[in-house]
Design a binder for these strands. Structure first.
Lengths: 203, 203
DNA sequence: GGGTATCATTAACACCGTTAAGTAAGTGAG
DNA sequence: CTCACTTACTTAACGGTGTTAATGATACCC
């Protein structure tokens, strides 16, 4: 039964081809400037072919983002495995998150800064968005490690993690959308934000 | 020469009429679900009439947001005039900002979470966006007051203000876009974020 | 009253996401 | 080998979008 397998392989191949083309355009021009027709042109298929592989544009670009965020999870995973002071490790993780966002502004924007499709069951969405959850769990682990090492006053873990997330998301998204704002210095603000957040938790 | 004035008045009136209609639809359905044709239908004019008063859709909705943010400036202004502990006042201002964002999610999203038009001279945009700058200046004043009262270690004013902005923008935007996330409690996260940020600056 | 500036309209362009219907090719059974 | 069927894909179309060019109407000034 090698034939069916070959067919399946080919199908998977084209699916990935679409994803890659979409990703490239997407990273270059952002969500709203990528059309199904442009993607189709790029892979030299008709626009409707894409709908055989993806329900709609939203799902397609969601998959692109998922691929990207898998890389973030990988990066964070490496950092959290490193030995040394848990507070320093946590800070390194926070900064890695911010830098990731700035390196992938379009993906970051569509996953975290766009309105979720209204009709969608929102809770389901959060359960399915596994890379996002994984990334968040690193935050919890990081905070937890600090508390265990008595470097952080014991607090509500979730609350602390959500606050940290708010902080690093804030600076990431502001730097993405307001690049021309007279920042006192990108690196400076990034580090000061991270330091302030962690110091605030320690206080 | 009363005639020209009356004409100008009528023109201004229709302009405001358009703004109001746009605002209403916009607040209800969000940027991407408002079309020029829908706005035109609402005021019972042809779509092209809008282009006599506004360069394009972006400018129209920019003006809507400007109106909204003027209300934020007003609110912050009242808070900053109140007597009492400058730290408490600063915190009240931060929370007012967050609440304002949550009350006006669509306007908040389009002014702070959407990609700025690429071609635009970005620096010019920030100079013209006066309500935004005014709101930010309250932040600087708030921090400055705390330092003067020796409630805050003297630091780079701009840096501190930008960090605070990042923090409150982070929680505001996350609560807007990820309403279904298992927050530990909206009020709780808001207050904890504000407290953490300020404590971090005090540390 | 005739010319002109002002405002609003109609029609159209070039896109968009998406769907229904149709086509061509390859597979599997009789 | 042939015929039915599945699969992969395309063409054509629908109803929408922001925006512009050309045109019409109307109130003003001389």
């Amino acid at each position: 039964m090698g034939i069916k397998e070959r067919r399946a392989r080919q199908k998977k191949y084209l699916r990935q081809e679409i994803l890659d083309a979409a990703s490239e355009l997407f990273v270059h021009d952002g969500y709203e400037n990528v059309s199904m027709r442009r993607i189709a042109d790029k892979i030299e298929y008709s626009p409707t072919t894409i709908y055989i592989y993806f329900r709609d544009k939203a799902e397609l670009l969601e998959q692109v983002c998922k691929e990207t965020f898998a890389r973030l999870v990988e990066r964070l995973s490496k950092i959290m495995k490193q030995p040394g002071d848990p507070v320093e490790r946590l800070k390194r993780g926070l900064i890695a998150y911010i830098e990731f966002g700035l390196e992938n502004p379009h993906q970051y924007r569509t996953t975290f800064m766009m309105p979720l499709p209204e009709g969608l069951d929102e809770k389901k969405h959060h359960q399915e968005n596994s890379p996002g959850i994984e990334a968040f769990s690193f935050l919890i682990q990081g905070v937890s490690d600090c508390i265990k090492a008595a470097k952080l006053r014991p607090t509500n873990l979730e609350l602390a993690a959500q606050t940290l997330w708010a902080g690093i998301h804030g600076i990431t998204s502001l730097l993405i959308t307001h690049r021309a704002f007279p920042w006192v210095g990108r690196e400076k603000v990034i580090h000061f934000t991270v330091d302030t957040l962690v110091a605030g938790l320690q206080a």
